[in-house]
C-alpha cells in the first residue's frame, strides 16, 4: 500500500524549509496544483479562497499551498516553545476526494523522512467545524507517536452548502511537524534553512523580533476603535459588493464580484480575532460577531454557488 521512495526518501530532512519543499514536491507529483499563499491575513489555511470557495461547486479541483496564519491571541512574545501568533500551515485540498487519499497522506509522511515501519501513526476521531465559515466535515487528527501532526477532513458543508462532490482536506501544522521531525524543543531553535550552510538561519532569526512586536500590538496597542470601524467597513463593503448590480457596464456582461466580497469577509474575521485578543469582546458579543462573519461567508458562498454551481 505504501510505495515509499516515490521521492528521494533516503535524504534526511534538515530544516523547516526542507519540510515545505518535500511536501510541495510530493503533492505536486500527486496531481495537485501548487498555489501560493493568499495575500490577506487569515486565521487558518481553510480561509484561502482556493479552499473555502473552490470546495463548492462540481468542478474538480486539487491544490496544495503554504498559508501563513495569524492567531493574535496566541502570541507569546516568542518565548513559548510552541505557541506563535504567526505560523504556517500546509494545506491540501482534493476534490473529489480520491479513494486513495489516506494512502497518499501516509506516503507524504514517508517523503518527510518519517519511517512508517518504526513509528505509530493513528487516526483519532476529530470532526472539524468552523462556526465563522458555516462549514463542517468529518475526519481525524493524525497522531505520530501520540503527537498530533495533521488534521484530516472530508468536507460536508461550506457556507451552509452541501459539498458535492466532497473535498478531502489535509492540514499540516508546519512548525509542530518540523520540530518533531527535526528533534527541536523550542520553535525558535528550529533551523529555517540548512543549518550547515554559511547563511544558516534559525526560525528565531527570522521571526523572534516580529513575534515580540506583534504580541505587544495584538494585546496592548491595536486601537480598538479603529478595529471596530474597520470591522464595520469590511462588513458593509462585503454586503455592498454582493448587492451591486450584477451587470458590469464596461464589460457589458454579468460580473458578480464574489472574491472581492469574500476578501472583505476574511478581513472582518481577522479584525474580529484582533479585537478578541485585545479582550474587548465579551462572551455574549463573541457569538454575535461570529454570527456576523458567518452571514458574510454564507452570502459569498451563495454567490459563488450561483455563479459556478
Amino acid at each position: 500500500m505504501l510505495a515509499s521512495g516515490r521521492l528521494d526518501g533516503d535524504r534526511a530532512v534538515y530544516s523547516f524549509q526542507d519540510i515545505i519543499l518535500r511536501l510541495q514536491m510530493f503533492w505536486a507529483s500527486s496531481g495537485c496544483a501548487l498555489l501560493q499563499p493568499y495575500d490577506l491575513e487569515v486565521g487558518a489555511g481553510t480561509f484561502h479562497p482556493a479552499t473555502t470557495l473552490h470546495a463548492l461547486g462540481p468542478q474538480p479541483w486539487s491544490v496544495a499551498y503554504v498559508q501563513p496564519c495569524r492567531r493574535p491571541a496566541d502570541g507569546r512574545y516568542g518565548n513559548n516553545p510552541n505557541r506563535l501568533q504567526h505560523y504556517y500551515q500546509f494545506q491540501v485540498l482534493m476534490k473529489p476526494s480520491p479513494s486513495e487519499f489516506q494512502a497518499l497522506y501516509l506516503e507524504s509522511l514517508v517523503s518527510l523522512g518519517i519511517d512508517l515501519n518504526l513509528h505509530d501513526i493513528r487516526f483519532v476521531e476529530d470532526d472539524w467545524e468552523s462556526p465563522t465559515l458555516g462549514a463542517w466535515g468529518l475526519g481525524w487528527e493524525v497522531w505520530c507517536d501520540s503527537m498530533e501532526i495533521s488534521q484530516f477532513t472530508y468536507f460536508q458543508q461550506v457556507g451552509g452548502h452541501d459539498c458535492r462532490p466532497v473535498s478531502g482536506e489535509i492540514t499540516y501544522g508546519l512548525e509542530r511537524l518540523g520540530m518533531y521531525i527535526l528533534g527541536v524543543d523550542h520553535v525558535m531553535d528550529m533551523p529555517f534553512n540548512d543549518p550547515r550552510s554559511e547563511n544558516a538561519l534559525s526560525y528565531g532569526d527570522v521571526f523572534r523580533q516580529s513575534e515580540q512586536e506583534y504580541s505587544r500590538f495584538n494585546f496592548d496597542m491595536a486601537d480598538t476603535n479603529i478595529l471596530l470601524r474597520h470591522f464595520e467597513d469590511a462588513e458593509a463593503e462585503c454586503v455592498a459588493l454582493l448587492r451591486a448590480q450584477p451587470h458590469d457596464p464596461k464589460l457589458d456582461a454579468v460580473n458578480v464580484m464574489v472574491q472581492p466580497a469574500y476578501d472583505q469577509c476574511i478581513k472582518a474575521s481577522h479584525i474580529f480575532n484582533l479585537m478578541d485578543a485585545r479582550g474587548v469582546i465579551s462572551v455574549t458579543e463573541r457569538q454575535a460577531y461570529i454570527g456576523r462573519v458567518r452571514t458574510l461567508a454564507k452570502e459569498c458562498a451563495d454567490a459563488y454557488v450561483s455563479k459556478r454551481g
Binding site: P81, N117, L118, H119, D120, D145, M147, Y180, D185
Partner: peptide, 28 residues
C-alpha cells in the same frame, strides 16, 4: 504506558522516544 498499533523492528524504541518527547513537552 502507551499502546501502539504495531510492532516494530526496533521493539518500539522510536515510538517510545517520540512519545517521551511529546509528553515531556506536554508536562513542561
Amino acid at each position: 504506558i502507551t499502546v501502539a498499533n504495531r510492532q516494530t523492528s526496533d521493539s518500539g524504541s522510536a515510538i517510545i522516544a517520540g512519545t517521551e518527547r511529546v509528553i515531556s513537552a506536554r508536562l513542561e
